[in-house]
């Protein structure tokens, strides 16, 4: 119920055409990883707090809020198959109708899976709340 906290590195974002799909997200993660590698920049350390209300992102160094994403804007989450330390989600932009895939690098494959399963559990709990509230 309370936020579960994870410490990850932000790889980046890319636009996607659909709110979900294994191949779509795999292709998006591939693009993000390639861009991050090409830039050669140090990745931003971020803290991710996951709850049935959504995902809150903070900059780990400054504790500054990056984004508070409502669960209703998140369509999909995955632990990537090719890049197995990568966790990613697809979210509808706050500003317009576009869909964005955001990817994060975890220290271990198990951690990418744990974040994905935690977000999936948040989806389920949010759905239970929603059904009750209806």
């Amino acid at each position: 119920q309370e936020g579960m906290v994870f410490h990850l590195k932000y790889l980046g974002v890319t636009m996607v055409e659909q709110p979900k799909g294994e191949e779509l997200s795999a292709a998006a993660v591939k693009r993000i990883v390639a861009t991050a590698k090409a830039s050669g920049k140090k990745l931003q350390k971020v803290t991710l707090s996951v709850s049935p209300r959504g995902i809150i992102l903070y900059d780990s160094a400054s504790n500054q809020l990056i984004e508070n994403i409502s669960i209703y804007r998140i369509s999909y989450c995955t632990a990537d198959k090719m890049h197995d330390k990568v966790f990613a989600y697809i979210v509808q932009s706050q500003h317009n109708e576009t869909l964005e895939c955001h990817a994060f690098l975890c220290s271990k494959r198990k951690m990418a899976q744990a974040v994905t399963l935690t977000v999936a559990q948040a989806f389920r709990v949010a759905f239970e709340y929603w059904q009750t509230a209806k």
Partner: peptide, 18 residues
């Protein structure tokens, strides 16, 4: 390969407003 994990959000684009 079956070890990919991915989940759709059942409340995506739903709201409690209506």
């Amino acid at each position: 390969n079956t070890n990919t994990i991915h989940f759709d959000n059942p409340v995506y684009q739903k709201t409690t407003e209506d």
